[in-house]
């Protein structure tokens, strides 16, 4: 068997894509719906912003079909800040992805938060020069997305709830599965790959290295600095915060606090200080009480 790992065989652009994800580590990527919010996020210390028309909590509340944002909005946000700008396309909607690449966004999130455009297939992300991030609930889903070309993975959580329970469950699941396959004898890995629905080569790489071949971030339900630090202690390398900031009473202060909590996630004394007097967090809804038809995390194949 070849000693060369899957990720060592990828084209040169791969290193550049994963490289940008590496640069975002230890940071907070914030959802913003206009240039003004983007500036607040940058001022608070966000490493990147996600440009979208509605935050997940509003998509949830208003219903309807959620699509890629208007390019006008994305351009306004690109003009407003110097940090990377990300944007979302629908699962499988490779034309939305082509448009986002043409706009020069720095990362595309093929996201379950938008209404899926394809109920069987995701975008083939190796065809693009721009890097992609995709959500996952378990290791198999993560490795399928990476094989398709995702340069960053985020555990999904349940977006727009302000409830951290699903984010925790998905991160624990991925980390547990990584630990499990690390200890399997090599002859069991093919069956493990089959059962997870994951490419064998990538299963081999994870078993040998004990981590995903791309950075693993956390998303979906982070509302407080403590939530962010919890996800970091559980193994996240950075966090996405969607509704949690701009659905709270004092977005600027909360945004800044979450940035600091991700840096000092292992320092409870600092976290106590950081968590003090932030104003009301987003109200939120219990993710476990949602019927399956309203769960976003189940989208993805």
């Amino acid at each position: 068997m070849s000693d060369i790992l899957w990720s060592e065989k990828q084209k040169a652009t791969w290193r550049n894509k994963v490289g940008l994800a590496e640069m975002l580590k230890g940071g907070v990527i914030m959802d913003v719906v206009n240039a003004e919010q983007a500036k607040i996020a940058e001022e608070a210390g966000a490493v990147a912003v996600m440009a979208l028309e509605r935050v997940p909590a509003d998509i949830r509340a208003q219903g309807g079909v959620a699509r890629m944002s208007d390019p006008k909005l994305i351009r306004e946000i690109q003009d407003a800040v110097s940090i990377p700008v990300m944007a979302k396309c629908r699962i499988g909607h490779f034309v939305e992805a082509q448009i986002l690449e043409a706009l020069g966004v720095d990362f595309i999130d093929e996201s379950e938060v938008l209404t899926p455009a394809d109920d069987r297939y995701h975008v083939y992300k190796h065809d693009f020069k721009v890097p992609f991030v995709c959500g996952c609930r378990n290791l198999g889903e993560a490795l399928r997305r990476i094989a398709e070309g995702a340069a960053m993975i985020r555990t999904k959580g349940e977006a727009g709830t302000g409830d951290i329970v699903e984010a925790v469950r998905h991160m624990r699941t991925v980390m547990d599965e990584i630990r499990r396959i690390q200890h399997l004898p090599i002859e069991e890995l093919m069956t493990a790959a089959k059962e997870m629905g994951a490419p064998f080569e990538l299963v081999l790489e994870v078993a040998r290295k004990g981590k995903l071949p791309v950075p693993n971030f956390s998303a979906g339900g982070i509302a407080t600095p403590a939530d962010a630090a919890l996800m970091m202690q559980l193994g996240a390398e950075a966090v996405f915060v969607g509704s949690g900031i701009f659905k709270s009473k004092n977005p600027a202060r909360r945004a800044r606090a979450i940035v600091e909590a991700v840096t000092y996630y292992n320092d409870p004394v600092k976290l106590a200080e950081i968590s003090t007097d932030l104003g009301e967090p987003m109200l939120g809804i219990s993710a476990r009480a949602l019927p399956e038809t309203e769960q976003l995390a189940v989208r993805g194949w």
Binding site: M23, K25, G27, G45, A46, S82, I83, P84, V259, E260
Partner: peptide
């Protein structure tokens, strides 16, 4: 290291 210079700069100040 590499990263986001505005983020690191703000944390250095804070």
């Amino acid at each position: 290291p590499g990263g986001e210079s505005t983020t690191i700069g703000k944390l250095l100040v804070r």
